[in-house]
Design a binder for these strands. Structure first.
Length: 207
DNA sequence: TGCCAGGCCCTCTTTAGGGCCTT
């Protein structure tokens, strides 16, 4: 498939609409199932980190004070990602923060997100949990580092994403999985994946 | 003062409720 960018944010909470800000961003570029480039940075948005968040992520106020400004980091990472299609685990979360942080620098996201959580629910419905760490364990994927740090989570989401594409290719004999197809599959009713893929094939071939 | 996310997905559903997932 085309090059995609898998991203992961660490933040001060769950909702930019409630004033939460990003504290760390990572993006990895995937080409032919391999990570070919990486970006990672802490980012200083001038906000305090709640203690339970520091416990969760290991990211402290002291670390953030020394980090580059959020605006500079977002300019760098959005340049790094360009218009490659995006992927995240629970993309509804990361897309909210991506859009909110881009808005602070007057940029607008041009591309769509695919979601490895929605895809996992469809392709691995039997998994005991669809949390990123649990899926990595379930699929026997390598642990990339400390969970709840952006680069480790982005690397693990990337390897999960590669696994999902492989599964899709095998199970449904889709030889060229596109980001556009994934965006359709992740919205399709679980019992209609086959129909969704057939319809996509027909649209692609112009019938 | 009191409140505080929101989208997905299942089910004892659809005139709704609650768990999962992200930090």
């Amino acid at each position: 498939m085309e090059i995609v960018a898998v991203i992961d944010f660490e933040t001060t909470g769950l909702s930019p609409a409630q004033g939460d800000r990003a504290t760390e961003i990572a993006a990895v570029l995937l080409e032919n199932g391999k990570v070919v480039d990486r970006y990672q940075s802490l980012m200083n948005a001038g906000v305090r980190i709640p203690s339970y968040i520091e416990t969760l992520t290991g990211i402290s106020d002291a670390m953030i004070r020394k980090a580059p400004k959020a605006a500079a980091v977002m300019q760098e990472v959005s340049d790094f990602v360009g218009d490659y299609p995006l992927v995240a685990h629970n993309a509804s979360f990361d897309s909210k923060f991506w859009d909110a942080e881009l808005a602070h620098i007057d940029r607008v996201r041009p591309q769509q997100f695919a979601c490895s959580l929605l895809l996992s629910r469809r392709l691995f419905p039997q998994a005991p949990s669809h949390r990123l760490g649990a899926l990595v364990e379930y699929a026997n994927l390598p642990v990339a580092g400390r969970a709840h740090r952006a680069l480790a989570d982005a690397e693990m989401a990337a390897s999960l994403f590669v696994k999902l594409i492989g599964e899709l290719g095998q199970r449904y004999e889709v030889h060229e999985v596109s980001h556009a197809l994934l965006c359709k599959i992740q919205r399709a009713p679980k019992h209609q994946l086959n129909q969704c893929i057939q319809r996509h094939r027909q649209e692609e071939s112009g019938h």
